[in-house]
Design a protein around this nucleic acid. Structure first.
Length: 947
RNA sequence: GCCGAGGUGGCGGAAUGGCAGACGCGAUGGUCUCAAAAACCAUUGCCCGUAAGGGUGUGCGGGUUCGACUCCCGCCCUCGGCACCA
């Protein structure tokens, strides 16, 4: 520390004494940025072509939607990936960094409806505008690889991929109730419906349900493989999000049979609870509902089915968690014990998950428990409590006098309140308690034990609550003995009325099976597998796996998308348009109506065609494809955007794929990134792509907010326009600020103040890095080997730090390191300017800046007479010997508190370090003369003396 | 409710379990200027102290450790996502 201070003083003294160097020309990005952009473009500096002699690197950033104006968020996403691409290029990689536009989609149609502009016109005008804005960044994009998903030469191959999936049985059509936005007039994907109110993601209109014939992709065929992330370096939160989205559940399919012998298959994750199934619940839409409903229940059932369908229509508030349902009059037989159990329907059972039917085990499933309690259905515990918690409640007057004394004598703890006893019984005392209760219970009453045991103790004997028959018997006796419980329909309802019991009545843990016939006593760890195997042997069930992931619905009743390349022939049904006839192009002459059907359906002639097989008149599918399809393979189209023999040129694929680094927003963790992986794997199975995964490394950036800390939006008026910023400060300043001001993966608010720091930094670099040809080497240079050494050390430490930070996406500390190097240059300027160490430091600074601020770095490089182009220079290597410190500062702690610092040689040994620490003033002062108990030495860092 | 991310000066943010607050903004004082801007130099977590120095400090409460922003347990708050998934 003191060394640095003295250096500072020396330098500042000389700075004031030295003649002022005046460069009339100020740093003016407007002069230099367009100049270099044009030069790089003309020289094709960033063309990426196959070169087997160099290692390739495919750097990819999520492609933008051409909404019209580039947003500062685009810069925030693209600047770091561009900087990193530039760094990799300087390190000798042959880097491909492509750009394009995800150009199909709803906003173009909304603009068409609102403003009468054709979606194509709107889209392509936006793209033209955005190209210009993107170029102002000075990024390394290879524009010859640009791909636009709405170009026929692009969507021809989107359609081709659809056909391939169709031919391989991965695309199929089914009638399906879909979410429909009445404002956008389009089908919405499940994930495009947002919020409690279930509104359209884009226009916030409440969605309704509509039944339509829809195309689906069998992404579920790949569910298992999509759960495997081995070999790819993706952030843990993304892998988790995908894993949860896919939602694998292991369990069993079990076939129940109605009394009229209709098989009803259910899926359960808990086959070990089968003996506790006391009723069944079907989804209201379940196909058996109509058949099984008895005539006297039909009216009520039909009303409920209608109501639950309407419920989704009218957006019933989701906060209403009260369970609803109706009994359909039918019974089923539990295959494990032959119990006759009622069949209900309820909207908490979803037709879209599992089999649309469940066995209800109210004792061990929260929803079933609430439902059973509400409707008076029996609840029978069949899994022991792992916590062994056992309770009993003896209300005043139910036991003979002396019970409390007897309990005390037996060492059984209890609380007594108003003559009633509340017992939490230790597991080893349960048997003793039952014995006592048996002796003390009055003949006109009873006593229960609940929790890990379920016993009803009457004066004439103990009844185990272990079956539905026992439930009926015990309940009848209780009703007979106690008028107050006659309104209780089940034992559980009766017990639930006792507040004290509630925490031991229900649980969903794994535990030993009880009340389950021959399986009673089976430990929780093996119960599921044993029961599943037994079911399979008996032919009424099997172990199975269910996923939350559903097949991907891709039909959209929209115009501005790729038409689905299917023709409907009266004879041949669904026929794929032959590859040679692709693309099926969009008609340009369409009518725009704010309401109604898809424009393709309304077009007078477009849908009319002939069957590719027989030539008879046939009709085209009038739906277009989900735009997620376009973005699921654009990384492949970038390989060869104008290739006509296939979706991409195989030679380009072999050289460039897979994508080495993919960057983008974390909001795409599930949809886009799962679809892309699915496409890659499905195409791989067709022999189109190769390898297990399309993208090896994924990194997410955060989101840039308005200066007010809120999400940027036009309505808030807090949108930062990158063009304004470039006008005010220049692209290099905006780039450097975006890297410097934030932890990249976090994001944060735009700051009009903090950017000043970057403005100053670049001005300082501009001043210090000017060529010093007109300056004689400083007269004192010869006697300053020490200062030269310090500057060289700082230079090489900066190389080391910046290189490591690029590797790890730590962009903010790259800039701070460069600022520090700049500050160091200023400190040594008076003494070293013009010396070899100075030249090394300045040229190194420019090289390290090149990826971040490419224009100013190139300009200063050229002014120093160095060969064009800076961006074709090799990334500097650091010399460990030069970077090494020769003196280090050891922190001296006494009992963990910093008490002093000592300077020691860098290679100091253990003993010397400890000795130096013990000898320090601070240590001696705080040891108060006591001998050290232990001394901890952390090499090169600190000594902690414990006394 | 569940899942995920996060909580460090006035602000943005740094810190392989080892000097908390690098770098920058802002602020304060100064140099230069007729003046301002720019530039340059210095100070800047909080508290006590004229100072030397000391105490305290990373959302809250515990724990592990010679040593915790960092690891463990339990809470609180903010943001994002999913919402009856059997």
């Amino acid at each position: 520390m003191s060394r640095k201070r003295s250096a500072t003083k020396t330098a500042s003294a000389k700075t004031t004494a030295a003649p002022a160097r005046v460069y009339a020309e100020r740093y003016d990005p407007k002069q230099i940025e367009p100049k270099w952009q044009a030069r790089w473009e003309a020289d094709g500096l960033y063309r990426a072509t196959i070169d087997p002699s160099r290692p390739k690197y495919y750097a990819l950033t999520m492609l933008p939607y051409p909404s019209g104006d580039l947003h500062i968020g685009h810069w925030y996403a693209m600047t770091p990936s561009d900087a990193r691409a530039r760094w990799l290029r300087m390190r000798g990689f042959n880097v491909m960094f492509p750009i394009g536009f995800d150009a199909f989609g709803l906003p173009a149609e909304n603009a068409a409806i609102q403003r009468g502009i054709h979606p194509a016109e709107w889209t392509y005008a936006n793209i033209a505008n955005m190209r210009g804005q993107l170029r102002s960044m000075g990024a390394t994009w290879d524009w010859e690889r640009e791909a636009v998903s709405s170009d026929p030469e692009y969507y021809r191959w989107t359609q081709w991929i659809f056909s391939q999936l169709f031919k391989h049985g991965l695309a199929y059509k089914k009638m399906s109730a879909v979410d429909w936005c009445p404002s956008c007039n389009t089908t919405l994907a499940r994930e495009q419906v947002v919020g409690d109110a279930r509104v359209c993601e884009r226009c916030k209109t409440p969605v309704i349900k509509k039944n339509l014939e829809q195309w689906f992709f069998r992404i579920t065929n790949y569910a298992e493989e999509l759960l495997d992330f081995s070999g790819i370096d993706w952030p843990e939160p993304v892998r988790l999000a995908q894993t949860n989205w896919i939602g694998r559940s292991e369990g069993a399919a079990v076939t129940f049979v109605s009394e009229r012998e209709d098989p009803i298959e259910v899926f359960t994750t808990r086959p070990d609870t089968l003996w506790g199934a006391t009723f069944m619940v079907l989804a209201p839409e379940h196909p058996l509902v109509d058949k099984l409903t008895t005539p006297e229940r039909r009216a009520e059932v039909q009303a409920y089915v209608a109501a639950s369908t309407r419920q989704t229509d009218i957006q019933r508030e989701a906060t209403d968690k009260e369970k609803t349902g109706v009994f359909i009059g039918a019974y089923a037989l539990n295959p494990v014990n032959g119990e006759r159990i009622p069949i209900w329907i309820a909207d908490y059972v979803l037709m879209t998950y599992g089999t649309g039917a469940i066995m209800a085990v109210p004792a061990h499933d929260e929803r079933d428990f609430a439902f059973a309690l509400k409707f008076g259905l029996p609840i029978l515990p069949v899994i022991d409590r792992p916590d062994q918690s056992t309770k009993s409640f003896a209300p005043s007057g139910t036991m003979h006098p002396g019970f409390a004394e007897a309990l005390r004598g037996a060492g059984i703890p209890f609380d007594e309140r108003q003559g009633s006893l509340y017992l939490t019984i230790p597991p080893e005392k349960v048997e003793r308690y039952v014995e006592l209760a048996r002796n003390f219970v009055r003949p006109d009453s009873w006593n229960e034990v609940v929790g890990t045991q379920w016993l009803f103790i009457f004066s004439d004997g103990i009844q185990r609550w272990d079956s539905l028959a026992a439930e009926r018997y015990i309940l009848a006796r209780c009703h007979a003995l106690e008028p107050d419980v006659r309104d209780k329909r089940t034992l559980m309802e009766m017990l639930w009325a006792v507040e004290f019991y509630r925490d031991v009545l229900y649980h969903h843990e794994y535990g030993a099976m009880v009340h389950s016939g021959e399986f009673s006593g089976t430990p929780g760890a093996e119960a599921r597998q044993k029961v599943a195997a037994w079911l399979e042997a008996r032919g009424c069930g099997r172990a199975t796996v269910t996923y939350r992931l559903r097949d991907w619905l891709i039909s959209r009743q929209r115009y501005w998308g790729a038409p689905i390349p299917i023709v409907y022939c009266p004879t041949h049904g669904q026929v794929a348009v032959p590859d040679g006839q692709l693309p099926v192009t969009l008609p340009m002459d369409v009518a725009w109506k704010p309401t109604g059907e898809s424009p393709l359906k309304l077009h007078p002639t477009w849908a009319q065609t002939t069957c590719p097989i027989c030539g008879q008149p046939a009709t085209r599918d009038t739906d277009t494809m989900d735009t997620f399809m376009c973005s699921s393979w654009y990384h492949l189209r970038y390989l060869s955007p104008h290739y006509t023999e296939g979706p991409f040129d195989p030679a380009e694929y072999d050289y460039w794929m897979p994508v080495d680094t993919y960057t983008g927003g974390a909001e795409h963790a599930t949809m886009h990134l799962i679809y892309t992986r699915f496409f890659h794997k499905a195409l791989r199975d067709m022999g189109v792509t190769r390898g297990p995964e399309p993208m090896l490394q994924l990194r997410n950036q955060g989101q840039i907010l308005g200066p007010d800390g809120q999400r940027m939006s036009k309505s808030r008026g807090n949108v930062i326009d990158p063009d304004d910023q470039v006008n005010a400060y220049g692209a290099d300043t905006v780039r450097a600020y975006l890297l410097f001001g934030y932890e990249w993966s976090e994001g944060g608010p735009w700051s009009t103040e903090n950017i000043q720091g970057v403005v100053r930094w670049l001005n300082r670099v501009w001043t210090i890095a000017q060529p010093a040809a007109d300056q004689a080497p400083s007269s004192s240079e010869s006697d300053t080997p020490g200062e030269a050494r310090l500057l060289r050390r700082a230079t090489h430490q900066a190389i080391q730090k910046v290189s490591a930070d690029f590797e790890n996406f730590q962009f903010n500390t790259i800039v701070s390191t460069l600022m520090e190097l700049t500050n160091t240059l200023y400190r040594h300027r008076a003494v070293l300017e013009g010396s070899p160490a100075w030249a090394e430091a300045v040229t190194t600074l420019l090289k390290l800046m090149a990826p971040i601020t490419p224009h100013i770095a190139e300009e200063l490089w050229a002014r120093r007479g160095l060969p064009y182009s800076l961006h074709q220079q090799a990334w500097p290597e650091f010399d460990p010997a030069v970077a090494a410190e020769d003196l280090i500062t050891l922190v001296v702690q006494v009992n963990g508190k910093v008490r002093d610092r000592v300077q020691v040689p860098a290679g100091v040994g253990d003993a010397e370090a400890k000795a130096a620490a013990l000898a320090s003033d601070g240590a001696r002062r705080f040891m108060h003369g006591q001998p050290p108990r232990t001394i901890v030495y952390v090499p090169g860092r600190l000594v902690n003396i414990v006394v």
